[in-house]
């Protein structure tokens, strides 16, 4: 009981995830700035932003549903934190592994997007409503290739749990090379899940003035930002756990390799963010359905054929 509470609240739950999310967000912003030839923010910038937002006045719009408006940021953060408990960090098994935790993880990661949609919808602001509708349209486009790309390696490994996949790929490390197309699809599609450039249409501050979060201020906005930063960490950890399942012996070495892997994924995500511009919503939908989904489908077929050949 006490150990479970420790896992939920301190490590690897809320406290560690929050601290790592702030570090992650700083590295992301610094890389973005350096790639634009700027100096970039100072190392404590995400922490200062978070504390400042906590101390600001919280305004709830007159026509918004007050209970739902307050509940949604907490829900988004809770879903992301819960998802993090099922990701292996320092060894090949997560804290609470079971057959099918990959699927549960993917569904827990869908919850924040639904919270963003409802947040925009319940704000009763025109900008927020357009952002909310875009968030949902986007969800139907990137979710299918993302799920297929993350489930293709699981098909080959014949296991729906992250620990089972790790066990399979540590005995057959060369099969990881087959999953490279799925890795590319997952990295591009998760930019949509994380609402980052080129798929940051729901926020789109230059056209929608902040999109779904346009009416959120103070403490509630701080929680939403924290949920987004944590989501970045969780998605990077998930991609590294699925496509780079290397865990050396020993907890400390495993933890160091985990940090290194997630930072590599973060670098790729920051690179994608800084070299691209925002696309329009119909371009986004067309790209996901015309290119990403067929590529993920080909990956699944290839993995199934390979499995037949091997068996």
């Amino acid at each position: 009981m006490l150990l479970a509470l420790f896992h939920i609240l301190i490590f690897p739950g809320m406290l560690f995830l929050g601290a790592y999310a702030l570090v992650f967000s700083f590295i992301d912003r610094k890389l973005y700035a350096r790639l634009q030839n700027r100096r970039g923010p100072r190392w404590y910038q995400p922490l200062a932003d978070f504390l400042k937002l906590l101390g600001k006045e919280t305004i709830i719009p007159e026509h918004a549903d007050k209970r739902v408006f307050v509940f949604l940021p907490v829900m988004a953060l809770a879903a992301v934190t819960a998802a993090y408990l099922y990701i292996p960090i320092w060894s090949s098994t997560s804290l609470y592994p079971f057959e099918g935790d990959l699927i549960v993880l993917l569904y827990l990661l869908t919850l924040p997007t639904l919270c963003f949609f409802l947040a925009g919808w319940y704000s009763t602001s025109v900008y927020a409503t357009i952002g909310a509708v875009r968030a949902l349209t986007q969800l139907f486009s990137y979710e299918v290739p993302l799920f297929m790309a993350l489930l293709a390696p699981a098909l080959l490994a014949d296991s729906w749990s992250l620990s089972g996949m790790t066990a399979y790929y540590s005995t057959h490390p060369l099969y990881l090379l087959i999953n490279i197309p799925a890795f590319l699809v997952a990295v591009i599609a998760c930019q949509g899940k994380l609402e980052r450039v080129p798929f940051d249409l729901p926020e789109a501050e230059t056209e929608l003035a902040g999109g779904t979060f346009v009416e959120y201020s103070g403490r509630l906005y701080a929680i939403f930002r924290m949920a987004i930063d944590c989501e970045l960490v969780v998605v990077a950890s998930l991609i590294s756990a699925v496509f780079l399942p290397f865990y050396p012996a020993g907890a400390w070495a495993g933890f160091g390799v985990y940090i290194l892997k997630t930072l590599v994924i973060l670098f790729i995500l920051a690179l994608l963010r800084s070299i691209m511009a925002r696309v329009r919503i119909e371009q986004m939908v067309a790209f996901c359905w015309k290119y990403l989904t067929p590529l993920a489908l080909i990956q699944i077929i290839a993995n199934l054929l390979l499995k037949g050949v091997l068996a």
């Binding site: 912003r29 700035a33 634009q36 030839n37 700027r38 100096r39 970039g40 923010p41 100072r42 910038q45 200062a48 932003d49 400042k52 600001k56 305004i59 900008y127 501050e205 230059t206 929608l208 003035a209 902040g210 979060f213 346009v214 009416e215 959120y216 201020s217 906005y221």
Partner: peptide, 21 residues
């Protein structure tokens, strides 16, 4: 713009008055 880079001081431009100081 990147030439003056106000993010050094933590300054970000926001689109909505609700997020601004």
């Amino acid at each position: 713009t990147p030439r003056y880079d106000l993010e050094r001081f933590g300054i970000l431009q926001q689109g909505t008055p609700r997020h601004s100081d």
